[in-house]
């Protein structure tokens, strides 16, 4: 039995190469437009692309809220409100989701393509 790739083999390798290329493109950014967090504060609006992990401080009506961006999602890590409902809301991920700290006047809406839900009920 000689090791001679058949046409079907070549096709399979080509398909695998294409699939892997697509997966890597998707994994290392450049996978099309990303979801962006629109952070509305009393002082104005700021955009945070969710493909850039990091911790961001935004000034609100009461003081500084801390937002964390990781794995394509955003959440409140801390906020100067008493209730901390914003922190407990956890991660907002898909386009259309929203987290907010109302006492501090900070509303984070996710905009972008796709998004599984048109609205979140809670």
């Amino acid at each position: 039995m000689r090791l001679r790739p058949t046409p079907a083999d070549l096709l399979a390798f080509a398909a695998a190469a294409a699939l892997l290329a697509a997966l890597h493109l998707h994994a290392w950014g450049g996978g099309g437009p990303v979801v962006t967090a629109r952070v509305e504060t009393p002082a104005g609006t700021r955009l945070l692309p969710l493909d850039r992990p990091g911790t961001y401080r935004v000034r609100g009506a009461l003081g500084e809220s801390v937002l964390e961006v990781r794995d394509g999602a955003v959440r409140f890590v801390d906020s100067p409100c008493r209730s901390k409902i914003c922190v407990r809301s956890g991660w907002a991920r898909g386009a259309g989701e929203l987290v907010a700290c109302l006492p501090n006047g900070i509303v984070v809406t996710l905009t972008g393509p796709g998004g599984e839900y048109d609205a979140i009920n809670f």
């Binding site: 001679r4 790739p5 058949t6 079907a8 083999d9 399979a12 390798f13 695998a16 699939l19």
Partner: peptide
């Protein structure tokens, strides 16, 4: 599916790739 492929079909090489993926 691969076993049903028309023509000369897959060699063990192609089968290994397809199966692993």
């Amino acid at each position: 599916l691969a076993a049903r492929c028309p023509g000369r079909g897959f060699s063990p090489l192609g089968l290994g790739l397809v199966a692993a993926m």
